[in-house]
Design a protein around this nucleic acid. Structure first.
Length: 262
DNA sequence: CCAGACGTTGTT
DNA sequence: GTCTGG
DNA sequence: CCAGACGTTGTT
DNA sequence: GTCTGG
């Protein structure tokens, strides 16, 4: 799913990674939650002078929680912070944005909560093994109020978890690789079906998952401490809930609890 | 034709 | 706004 | 995503 | 349980 993430790289790193001009005020953020402002990157709206060296992409802050343009009262609805990539093309709410407003959301990594039976959810900090900035595929929309006010919003696309992350959760954000940035955001030349291949689970070896304390659960905890590893890990918690109602034996994760990819 | 929905997650 | 259901 | 609230009256 | 807030 991706209902919480972090962007702690410097402004310069993000500009270099995305090839975009990023706004000045740019503190590291360790615990970004739905409804908060998030950075999106999209093609610049202004025409560049010929021969300009300036990036032709720009970052903007928008509200995390996609609001379809036809909604009357954006605050009366639960924010749509994730959008299923498998069905986005068929949904009224997302069709236009998938055709015309495909954007990227720069991130340093994201969080997933692993639930195990009745046990408490264990949060994991999931980051690229070799660091750097990643980019989630996202859709942007501008909501217009009756009074002429406007709110820019975005939702992060999701797909099935890759094999490595499926031990933690069954969904994951769409991660766009740098070679696909231009095609993803070029809505003038590429139709949704021509970018469908981008909305796939990331390779198994891209991420590492680090169990962290539940400090991250609380949105008001915004210090780097939310990413401190804890000893509790998949091995310790990957046991079947004791009083399982049925005994399938096939599709659970009990095994030996071992996680080769971590 | 008009009315009504329009989303994701996880859990049962 | 646009689609589905009746 | 998780955390936290979830209510009214009257009085100051 | 269900909704709102971040």
């Amino acid at each position: 799913m991706c209902g919480r993430f972090s962007l702690k790289n410097s402004r310069d790193e993000v500009e270099a990674a995305l090839g975009a001009l990023i706004p000045d005020d740019f503190p590291p953020r360790y615990n970004i939650a739905p409804t908060q402002p998030i950075l999106i990157v999209m093609p610049s709206e202004t025409v560049r002078p010929v021969g300009s060296n300036r990036p032709d992409r720009a970052g903007h802050l928008v509200r995390w929680g996609f609001v379809p343009s036809w909604v009357k009262d954006p605050n009366a609805r639960a924010p749509i912070f994730n959008i299923r990539s498998e069905t986005a093309a068929e949904k009224n709410s997302f069709k236009a944005a998938l055709s015309h407003r495909r954007v990227l959301v720069p991130a340093s990594g994201f969080y997933e909560w692993r639930r195990n039976g009745s046990n408490r959810a264990q949060p994991y900090w999931i980051r690229p093994r070799h660091g750097g900035v990643i980019a989630f595929g996202a859709l942007m929309e501008t909501w217009s109020g009756a009074d002429g006010s406007q709110i820019d919003t975005a939702g992060i696309l999701t797909t099935g978890a890759n094999e490595a992350l499926s031990l933690i959760h069954h969904r994951m954000p769409v991660v766009v690789v740098p070679e696909d940035y231009a095609r993803w955001m070029d809505c003038k030349h590429y139709l949704p079906r021509e970018v469908a291949d981008i909305m796939q689970p990331a390779p198994d070896d891209l991420f590492e998952a680090i169990p962290v304390s539940d400090l991250v659960n609380k949105v008001s905890n915004t210090s780097p401490d939310v990413q401190l590893p804890v000893s509790a890990d998949l091995t310790a918690t990957a046991t079947r809930p004791k009083k399982a109602g049925k005994k399938t034996g096939a599709d659970d994760d009990s095994g030996n609890g071992q996680l080769s990819m971590f």
